[in-house]
Amino acid sequence: MIAATLDSADGIVMTTDPATARERALRALATRQPLDLAVAVVTAHPDDETVGLGGAMARLRNLTLVQLTDGAPLEPDVAARAGFPSRQSYAAARRGELVDALAVLVEGRLARQVFYEIPDGRLADHLAVAVERLVEDLIHVDVVLTHPYEGGHFDHDAAAFAVQEACARLARHGAHAPTRLEFTSYHRLHGLLRTGRFLDDPAAPEIVVPLSAEAARRKEVAFACHRSQAGNLRMFGFGPERFRAAPTYDFARPPGGEAMYGMEVWRGLSRAFAGATEA
């Protein structure tokens, strides 16, 4: 037994309190030990999970994967350039690629898999719905891992917002909210693209987890499963994976990194954030 009374400050009981969950999760990730806590991985696109934590996923024993977009943009020429006759067939192919990758990464062992099926690139247009659904889904887990707010891809930044907002709503309603962690994606710093790293933030210490040979092999095979993304995935290597407790972001301000998608897009994103923030 952990405690005979309710948890400290807010009097809320949880299956595992946030501080303990954060500590246990980061320790398990750092030491490459199995983690039995209920963990949700929330990603913007199919393949983000492979990039960010493909080596660590196998050790998450109670894993829920929440896929926010279907990986297929609305613009028909994108599907055509990827060799698909329609957006729908492109989305179906990406779903299939994800299933293949998960078979490698976690041998299909998922406690739960949820697809929000928002078109790729349009997460900001559906933020209110995404946040509401995340409230419903994240109430069941102890830990949520998602993208950092770093200006790399606007869907990634929207995902970071949606998770922070959903957790904040749960907490405001006096409900169980998971502790928030982050995995790496990509951003631009001093004009250069950086992958597999966080923007430097002394207030948010990170842990660095080298891949074992087996994890690196699994990740490499999983990369290959995302066949339609082979070009993009060449940007990412099989170096250490990094994790950290998620900072509490001020989404009214631009991301810490350069907005790779441009400030005009960020201003639109910012309006979407404001519109989806609960008063």
Binding site: M14, A38, R112, I139, H140, L170, H173, A175, H176
Partner: peptide
Amino acid sequence: ARRPGTRLAAALL
């Protein structure tokens, strides 16, 4: 959890 006065402290699926 949305019901006023209800504190949903833990939920397992």
